[in-house]
Every structure is written in structure tokens, then in C-alpha cells.
Amino acid sequence: MGAINRRQAFLLGGGFVALTVLPMAANAEPSNDAAELIKKFTGGKEATKGKITFDLPEIAENGNTVPLALTVESPMTAENYVKEVLFVADGNPNAGVATLMFTPMSGKAEASIRIRLAQTQNVIAVAKMSDGSLFTERKTVKVTIGGCGG
């Protein structure tokens, strides 16, 4: 736990008066290297929306441990499978989250991991298929910050 820091003290105190509902900052321009990472992954090619489903809580109880479950639509045969899925988070200090690499032996293009989100932001997935086609999906996660949960 450690000693309460000044920010925590400030938030805790401020919270009792901060009741105004304000628009979320989730659609603001990415503040990190998310765009660069995606460009590097896709080689600058456009990714189509679709084929990817990922489960993330609408509101993360704590940004330190946010469960993420991925499913990509694919037969996962030697001829047609998902090769790689890049995950980036556009509001973290660094955008990189993970790159998942599948093979036909994976059987399904499904995986679950737990991620850290420093604030309310978008998580973006880009999938690269064995034929080189690209698909993408994004989700906004609201992250609870402040109070006793820090």
C-alpha cells in the first residue's frame, strides 16, 4: 500500500465536491505511439473493421488488472488462419500491450490476457491473416481511478 501520495490525497479530498458530469476524454487524439505501432504492424495498409471480437469490461474496476478476451473469426486451417494480433492502448504512457501469434495448431484464434490501463481510453486490435489481409476493432474502457482503490 505505501504512504498515501499527494495526488491520492488531492483526489480523495476533491472527490467529495467533484459531482459535475463531464464528457469523457476517450476520443481525444492518441497521446502516445499507438498510430506508429499500428503503422509498423500493417505496413501502412488499411485494416478493415470486422472479424475481431474482444471482450473488455465497459468499466474496469481497477486499471491495473483488466481482463481482455479475444476471438477472431477464422477457420484456422493451414491455408487460412490468423497469424498475429496486435493490441495497443491509446491512452497509456506507451501504446504497446501485446502481440499474439497464432498457428493452425492453435485450433481457434482465441486468447485471454490481463492488461493495464492508466486511464479511460481506447484499446485497438489489428489482426493479420495468413493471406496478408488486415482487420481491426476498437473498444473504449472507462477506468476507475481515485478513492480507496487508488
Partner: peptide, 24 residues
């Protein structure tokens, strides 16, 4: 990772409270 997002957090958290009721 907490220090840089201090001011944002206050706004985000206030907005969160209403929608959070549905989730908890």
C-alpha cells in the same frame, strides 16, 4: 503510472459514477 493523469482522473471519475451504477 498515477502521477501524470491527476487532473484527468477527477473529470473521468465524476463522469463514471452515473454509468457505473449499471455495472455494479
Amino acid at each position: 503510472m498515477s502521477i501524470r493523469y491527476g487532473s484527468l482522473a477527477v473529470l473521468a471519475t465524476a463522469a463514471l459514477t452515473l454509468s457505473a451504477i449499471a455495472v455494479f
